[in-house]
């Protein structure tokens, strides 16, 4: 089924802003918040991994259940994981659709990539020194 994905700022993401290569930032920005009923429908449990796919791309995330969302709505902290499935089309406004992105969600055993992996996937080069 199709879900509606929103992204936004959260404290853990903000606190790691100066450390975007860290494990902490990766954990803070690669979590998909999802309603327990939606997890049930997907046949998985909180903490299991899912592949989230939009028109712009797909990314593997770890789930975390929350009842603060309506069913059918999922949430992710802003960051490179959210952007992996955000398109560059701005409807002539300059602003891409960072919110209310239609996505498909399916359980997966694929790994959650690191930030460097994501950057190298699009042609970048990690700096590890």
């Amino acid at each position: 089924m199709t879900y509606t994905l929103n992204s936004g700022r959260v404290i853990p993401q903000g606190a790691f802003v100066e450390h975007k290569i860290s494990q902490g930032y990766r954990e803070a920005t690669s979590v998909l918040f999802i309603h327990p009923m939606d997890l049930f429908q997907l046949g998985i449990e909180s903490g299991d991994k899912v592949r989230v796919t939009s028109a712009a791309g797909s990314v593997v995330l770890r789930t975390e259940e929350t009842e603060t969302l309506r069913e059918g709505c999922v949430f992710i902290a802003l960051g490179p994981y959210a952007n992996a499935i955000t398109g560059g089309y701005s409807h002539g406004t300059g602003m891409p659709d960072y919110k209310a992105i239609p996505v498909e969600i399916e359980p997966t055993d694929d790994p959650v990539m690191t930030v460097w992996d994501l950057m190298e996937e699009i042609g970048g080069l990690r700096y590890d020194n």
Partner: peptide, 16 residues
């Protein structure tokens, strides 16, 4: 930090 905040298609061009 556009690497962390831009859609993938946009930073692909920055890398190029």
């Amino acid at each position: 930090d556009p690497g962390a905040h831009f859609p993938k298609t946009c930073i692909e061009h920055m890398a190029a």
